[in-house]
């Protein structure tokens, strides 16, 4: 039996569908979540292969210790052999705790299904290499990097069962939560438009945002740009920022330093716009444009709009 843990605090995200699809390829899937998600939304997880969804509504998700206890109780009661998480900020915090509690080996940031020997690929050295991991324990935990598998719809909705697990007292009290309004969270975005120091100043980001809106993309930036306060810190991608692997990454006025590439080189397609034909980023790019961002970006935006309306 495969258990897929779904974080449904902000609704059900595409990475949850990916995790269920992944789990389904390993065996029969039960999905587990906590909190207040609508039952009809949870039932839709059946379309991706869940045979049922368990939900513990009394647990709000702020306390990882509590969630860990809840999951381990479900694992033990259902003879679960493999637990799948999405390797987002939630999975990253809960999966390691569960690993110790169950003495179950954890594959952190998986990007493939197990091969014939049961080994799973993960990115290592900030995306500069791949490693094959073998799990020696009987119960296994896999934390799946978002955008590593296409969600597959093949069934109808499934039953949703309310459960209640005694997890003891809560030790972490949530005082406040801030959610950026209407923005696409960077790690989940399929399309990303990113810019660097080549843009000269924060007042020039309008054209970047316009292009992002036309494409339905999230915005990102290089580290110096976040450090000098031109852009918010959560947009900083790279080795010391967020690591992303969208389908499309457009890099505008970014030189392509190795620490920047480390956070984006998992992107499927990379477009680089830079005045300097020697910029190292061109070596990592699929499509390159040597030109001035101030001319190229508005022109690209126009072309995108024309394409979208045709």
């Amino acid at each position: 039996m495969i258990l897929v843990y779904i974080n449904s605090t902000n609704g059900i995200s595409k990475s949850s569908f990916e995790a269920i699809t992944y789990g389904k390829k390993l065996g029969d899937v039960i999905a587990l979540t906590n909190g207040g998600a609508l039952s009809e939304d949870l039932a839709s997880l059946g379309q991706y292969g869940a045979s049922k969804v368990l939900v513990d509504r009394a647990i709000d998700g702020g306390d990882q210790q509590q969630i860990t206890k809840m999951i381990s109780s479900v694992v033990e009661n259902n003879g679960v052999k493999t637990i799948v998480f999405s390797h987002d900020l939630f999975g990253k915090s809960v999966a390691p705790m569960l690993s110790v509690r169950l003495r179950a080996g954890l594959v952190s940031g998986a990007i493939s299904l197990p091969d014939a020997d049961g080994c799973i690929d993960v990115n290592v050295f900030s995306g500069k290499a791949l490693g094959k991991v073998r799990v020696n324990s009987e119960v296994k935990i896999i934390s799946l990097l978002p955008n590593s598998i296409q969600p597959e719809e093949n069934g109808g909705s499934c039953p949703v069962e309310e459960i209640s697990v005694d997890t003891g007292s809560v030790s972490i009290k949530v005082l406040s939560t801030k959610k950026p309004e209407g923005e696409i969270p960077l790690p989940e975005a399929e399309l990303v438009v990113s810019a660097g120091r080549g843009l000269k100043g924060p007042e020039n980001w309008g054209m970047v945002e316009d292009l992002a809106v036309s494409l339905g993309a999230a915005t990102a930036c290089s580290r110096p740009v976040a450090d000098i306060g031109w852009r918010p810190h959560h947009e900083h991608v790279g080795q010391t920022g967020v690591a992303i692997r969208p389908n499309l990454y457009i890099a505008i006025g970014i030189s392509g330093a190795i620490q920047h590439l480390a956070g984006v080189n998992g992107s499927k397609v990379i477009v680089v716009i830079n005045t300097d034909s020697e910029a190292p980023f061109f070596k990592a790019a699929d499509y390159g444009i040597i030109g001035d961002a101030f001319e190229v970006v508005p022109r690209l935006n126009e072309a995108v709009n024309k394409f979208k309306t045709s």
Partner: peptide
Amino acid sequence: INYNGSQVGGMIAA
């Protein structure tokens, strides 16, 4: 930054 696991902290806590 070599193994990028984000694992050790949560494991110590557990």
